[in-house]
Design a binder for these strands. Structure first.
Length: 254
DNA sequence: ATGGCCGAGCGCCTCGGA
C-alpha cells in the first residue's frame, strides 16, 4: 500500500493538479490539507468519476482536511476527540486495515506569539490522541503538514531558520514526543533518491527553482507498518506546474 | 532582472500562510 500526503493550498484551485497526480502516481490513500472549503463544496463527483472515495472535514477559507482512497473508507473520526477546536485540522479513517490520521498542524506564526501557544496546546492534544490510537491500531500512519522541520538539515539555511518558527526547540520536542509513541519518520529513515529532501518552498524569491525549501510534510508510521517500508517519494511534478501548491506531495510504500 | 507570492473574501486591501 502506498500512502501519501499533500497540502494542496485550496482544493478548488488544485483539483486539476490533484486528479492528474493521482492518475500518474500509484498511491492508494492520500491525506489532503488546506482544502479551504466546506464539506458541501467538496468535489466528490469528480473524484468518484476518477475512482476515488473521499471523506472531508472542511471549513470556509482556512484549514480543512480530507482522506482519499481507492478502497472503502471506514470508521471516520473528525477532529481530535475531547479537544475543543473550531479549526478543522484532523480527520482519521481506516483503509485496508491501516488506521490513517491526516493532520494539518498549526503554523504558529512566531515563537512566543498567541498562535504559537495554541500550536503548543494543539500538539499536546495530538500527542494524547495519537498515543490512544497507537494502542488500538497496530498499523497506524499519521500523515500531513506538521509545520515542523525536525532537524537543521531539514531547512535550506539553518542560519536563517534555527530557533525560529517551525524550527524551535519546543516544536521539535513535540515532534520527538510523537515519534516516542512508537512512530517512524519514513522520509528520514528512507530518504528518496533525487535532488531534494524538502517538501515545501516559498512562492517568493524563486525559492523552488533555487531549492530553498523545508522538510515539513511527514509520513509517520507505526513500527509494525514501517517494518514493511520499501520506498519514499517527494513528488516534484505538481510543484513544477503552473499555479502550483507551495507543497509537494509525499508518499511512502508499505 | 539576485527579485517584487498566493488564496480567499461582503475583495481592489487585509489576513494567513511557513
Amino acid at each position: 500500500m502506498r500512502i501519501g500526503t499533500w497540502n494542496v493550498n485550496s482544493l478548488r484551485v488544485r483539483l486539476p493538479h490533484l486528479l492528474e497526480w493521482l492518475e500518474t502516481d500509484p498511491v492508494d490513500v492520500v491525506g489532503l490539507q488546506e482544502i479551504k472549503m466546506q464539506d458541501e463544496q467538496f468535489p466528490h463527483e469528480a473524484l468518484r468519476a476518477a475512482g476515488w472515495n473521499a471523506v472531508s472535514n472542511g471549513q470556509k477559507t482556512y484549514n480543512g482536511v480530507a482522506i482519499l482512497s481507492r478502497q472503502a473508507i471506514e470508521d471516520v473520526v473528525l477532529d481530535i476527540p475531547g479537544f475543543e477546536d473550531p479549526q478543522k485540522r484532523v480527520i482519521a479513517a481506516t483503509v485496508g486495515g491501516v488506521r490513517v490520521i491526516c493532520v494539518y498542524v498549526v503554523n504558529g506564526q512566531a515563537v512566543g506569539s498567541e498562535k504559537y501557544e495554541y500550536k503548543m496546546r494543539w500538539l499536546s492534544a495530538l500527542h494524547a490522541y495519537v498515543t490512544s490510537e497507537a494502542a488500538q491500531h497496530e498499523k497506524l500512519a499519521v500523515v500531513g503538514d506538521y509545520n515542523i522541520a525536525p532537524a537543521p538539515e531539514d531547512t535550506h539555511d539553518p542560519e536563517v531558520w534555527e530557533g525560529g518558527i517551525l524550527c524551535s526547540d519546543a516544536e521539535r520536542a513535540h515532534y520527538r514526543e510523537l515519534l516516542d509513541v512508537g512512530l517512524v519518520d519514513c522520509l528520514a529513515l528512507n530518504p528518496p533518491e533525487g535532488e531534494t529532501r524538502f517538501t515545501w518552498w516559498d512562492y517568493r524569491q524563486a525559492a523552488f527553482r533555487r531549492n530553498m525549501g523545508l522538510r515539513i510534510d511527514h509520513v509517520l508510521a507505526s513500527k509494525a507498518l514501517a517494518a514493511t517500508l520499501s520506498e519514499c517519494q517527494i513528488h516534484l511534478e505538481p510543484r513544477r506546474r503552473e499555479r502550483p501548491s507551495d507543497h509537494a506531495p509525499v508518499s511512502a510504500s508499505f
